[in-house]
Simulated assay, not measured.
Amino acid sequence: MNLGPMEIVIIAIVIFALFGYKKLPDATRAVGRSLRIFKGEMKGMKDEDVATKAEAQTVRAPLETPQPQTPVVTPPAESTKQPHTPPSTTA
Score class of each variant (00 low, 15 high):
N2L: 03
G4Q: 10
G4S: 03
M6G: 04
M6E: 14
M6I: 14
V9T: 14
V9P: 00
V9R: 09
V9H: 11
I10P: 00
I10W: 01
I11Q: 06
I11R: 01
A12N: 11
I13A: 13
I13T: 09
I15V: 12
A17Q: 11
L18I: 09
Y21V: 15
K23D: 09
K23A: 06
K23Q: 08
L24N: 00
A27S: 06
A27I: 04
T28L: 15
T28R: 02
V31K: 02
V31Y: 04
G32I: 07
G32W: 00
G32Y: 02
G32F: 07
S34A: 15
S34C: 05
L35A: 09
I37D: 04
F38Y: 06
K39R: 14
K39I: 03
E41D: 03
E41R: 12
D49Y: 10
T52E: 15
A54V: 07
E55V: 15
A56P: 00
Q57D: 13
T58M: 10
T58W: 06
V59F: 09
V59G: 07
V59K: 11
V59Q: 15
P62D: 03
L63A: 08
L63F: 01
E64S: 09
E64Y: 06
E64P: 06
E64Q: 04
E64F: 04
P68Y: 09
P68M: 08
T70G: 14
P71M: 08
T74I: 06
P75H: 00
E78F: 01
S79M: 08
S79F: 09
T80R: 08
Q82R: 15
Q82T: 10
Q82S: 14
P83W: 03
T85Y: 12
T85P: 04
T85D: 15
P86G: 09
S88N: 04
T89Y: 14
